[in-house]
Design a protein around this nucleic acid. Structure first.
Lengths: 236, 236
DNA sequence: CGGATTGTTGAGGATACTCAAGTTAGGTGG
DNA sequence: CCACCTAACTTGAGTATCCTCAACAATCCG
């Protein structure tokens, strides 16, 4: 497999401020990896041996509780850093990453983390920002799950997907990777049944278009009104 | 007011690997600030002008939702960095910090953040770790709120307080700052009424001792069993 | 075409919330 | 130091929300 060209890395914020020579240097210890759809990228509890950047595709990161319930922690989009357990002084991955579509990542041995952070201040600053954004997102989710009724929670979950993984199309904004009702439920802190009922109601109201692992938001503005509780819910 | 001595800063991880001279330099732009119990340290939405380290006391960081409900984001303990909005490229504070007891902090102008991160790689690494720990904690809360019944959620909330702010005493572990049932509710994603009922049940079972803004865990081990769902709940 | 995965829909019921009323504790000021 | 006032807490009753359980339908894939 071809080692990615400098220009690919140069696009990504963590590496944007590095020189050509530095990027060459950084790329020396990187290995590209391909993950077929459905394959496991790393597993919760396994030794954290690599950190990576997703070049294309999508990953779904999940955690399972001791009692077996699953929670979707986040979706990894192209350009995102992932698997940085070492930055948190963890020796094992806190979650499981699965490729939802065929994906390509650039992967470094975990020992390279400290040198990168120490040598390239702009890399460190970018890492702080990335983790900080995830923290803000996590706190939003906590706020939502704690204070909002299910329908609004699902609304915010869908809107977050729209922002992070939506592509504009003729009839609306499509979530451009396969996502099941179960996934949505595990993101919103509810059950697949409740998500199904809510999306059906929204579909009748013309807010969304859904199908098996498909989701398109036709009226983001009105969905926002529902999610923010300005417009009443659409459940029977 | 007295400017803190080097040795105070030297104890804190973010500064531990700096030399005497560097610490002197860093202290030059720092200002100590005193906050009376109940006073507001910074307010959600206000311009983020300072970041700080808590020297002693406790802060409670909250967020209010657009609809007015409040959520407790975290408790700031001595030694913690707080108010680092700038690291996340925010220009305003995402939450409100209130001193729950008289507190003392060391405070830097926000413009000092970038120089510190760029100049002292060990400071950057420490910042990454601190934010990462908060992220892990936030994800634990999401997992708990999403999957656990209230009693277990409250259990985990109390246990987290024990770990972060508990002091060992003769009869158990005391949370050593004033914490109301309302606070606990806003941490666990429930109501003050439910927290009250649960704590009363636990008190009868000898797990805890509660009072007005007081909380002591007498049997942490058994509380853990309840929180983890190994032992059945104690609610009537 | 058949099996498996994903999704739909209904009925019933438990959990935890809301609403309400009262109690206790602590701080404040006279 | 006591009386008062407020904030914190307790407890009960009724009920809404959303979960669980169940059966079935649709879609995809080999």
């Amino acid at each position: 497999m071809l080692v990615p060209h400098h220009s690919v890395l140069k696009q990504l914020p963590p590496f944007a401020r590095l020189s050509e020579i530095e990027i060459t240097e950084v790329l020396r210890s990187a290995v590209p990896r391909r993950y077929p759809a459905g394959s496991v990228v790393f597993e919760q509890g396994a030794a954290a041996l690599h950190f990576s950047v997703l070049l294309n595709g999508r990953l779904r990161v999940t955690q399972v509780t001791p009692t077996g319930e699953q929670v979707v922690v986040r979706i990894v989009n192209p350009g995102d850093i992932f698997g940085i357990a070492r930055a948190l002084r963890l020796h094992t991955y806190p979650g499981t990453a699965t490729a939802v579509v065929e994906s390509l990542a650039l992967s470094w041995p975990m020992e390279q983390w400290e040198p990168l952070v120490e040598r390239y201040p702009s890399f460190a600053a970018s890492a702080i920002r990335v983790i900080g954004e995830r923290l803000l997102e996590a706190q939003s989710r906590i706020r939502e799950i704690s204070t909002e009724v299910v329908e609004r929670r699902v609304g915010h979950t869908v809107l977050r997907l729209v922002q992070q993984s939506g592509v504009r199309e003729a009839e609306g904004i499509r979530i451009d990777f396969p996502i099941s009702k179960q996934d949505l439920a595990e993101m919103a802190g509810t059950t697949l049944h409740t998500v199904s009922r809510i999306l059906t109601a929204w579909e009748h109201a013309g807010l969304v278009d859904t199908g098996r692992q498909k989701l398109m938001v036709k009226d983001p503005h009105r969905l926002l009104l529902v999610a923010d509780g300005i417009e009443p819910g659409l459940l029977g």
